[in-house]
Design a protein around this nucleic acid. Structure first.
Lengths: 197, 197
DNA sequence: CTTCCACTTGACTGATCAGTCAACACCGTC
DNA sequence: GACGGTGTTGACTGATCAGTCAAGTGGAAG
């Protein structure tokens, strides 16, 4: 029971947020679900907004693990991108199974919502998105060096396109409640790279 | 002053929602901005949710006009898609200028938020998204018949990819506050179609 | 002139919201 | 066994929320 209260709050908050949205989840909802009293939450977080930021960071840690696993592999760059997209789709499917409804992208959805609160939040969100896109642009550059991707493609622009496509796919998957859309995103990503699958 | 109260409420609600989100805009905010008393709003709308639906419909009307203008033109199918993407980007840029911050996609963002409220809302949102995608799939099919697009591409899947890419681009544009991302979306759409620009 | 109805008014309800606070419990340390 | 820091408690504040309602207003129709 010692020390894990903060962790539990973040975990519960994440689940509740992904099931609806940051705005629609109240501090009381989170506390009740976590079995914690309101004052306790404010011992760890100065505001609900900061708790949201902690959730975003936790999501980014999860996404980073996925990225490291895929991009750290000993594999050609295009296959590393494929691996990540598969992992991303698997994560969405898993979350859907755990919560009964298809979630948004854990990064994009929350980022978009929090970045409307303050400039500081937006800066934080863009930093995360930049770090994410950097994995893609690095792989694109490498694939170009290997002659697998057209060198006329700008790596940064292409990376942003892939990111946008994944975000949009997650958004549609949520609205349609069809998590498999994200699972099948590899084809679209390959099309953006100009390489047949 | 007669008859336009309902219209004004929808217009004001739309602006406020695009500037933040449906959840963060209160009924009082809308009424104050529209110069209308709370009871009056509830004369026209049975709930805030229904007002949100009216806003979504108004946005769809606007988007439909854009679609009709682009896809009704006497032009080859790929150019019609280009025209729409240009129009879409122009709309986002215009909204950004009018409101001081980059909005979400008027359809996708609100749809995603409302569809979490009830199954009825989600059905409404998906119907709109389907109608939108149908414009793309029709053009893809036509381009395939003209030999301009690889016939191995599934028109419906490709249409959904384009839609997802546009939604995601709008989402990134909002988070980065860079509306020009949407203006430059044509290249990405063309990549998804497997055709050079 | 009267009836009628679409529309407006603004005060009201009860719920819920984020956030505060002083008191308290449990710890290892000295 | 006194101390101090790390957490916990639960009642509290004041604001804000969506939605209600009975009493109006004004104009068109009869």
């Amino acid at each position: 029971m010692a020390g894990d209260t903060r962790e539990r709050l973040v975990r519960v908050a994440r689940d509740l947020i992904h099931d609806s949205s940051f705005a629609q989840v109240s501090v009381e909802d989170i506390c009740k679900e976590a079995g914690v009293h309101r004052g306790s939450l404010y011992h760890f977080f100065p505001s609900k907004e900061r708790l949201g930021l902690a959730v975003l960071d936790a999501n980014w840690a999860m996404m980073s693990a996925l990225l490291d696993e895929a991009f750290g592999a000993e594999a050609p760059p295009l296959e590393r991108i494929d691996r990540f997209v598969r992992g991303f789709g698997g994560m969405i499917v898993l979350m859907r199974e755990r919560m009964g409804s298809t979630p948004d992208c854990p990064i994009g959805g929350l980022s978009a919502e929090l970045s409307g609160h303050s400039a500081e939040m937006r800066a934080h969100a863009t930093r995360i998105l930049d770090a994410w896109a950097a994995h893609f642009s690095g792989a694109v550059r490498e694939a170009q060096a290997r002659g697998e991707v057209d060198t006329r493609l700008d790596p940064e622009e292409t990376a942003l396109r892939i990111l946008a496509y994944l975000q949009g796919t997650a958004l549609l998957a949520r609205t349609y409640d069809r998590p498999e859309l994200v699972e099948h995103a590899r084809g679209g990503v390959r099309a953006l790279l100009g390489t047949s699958l």
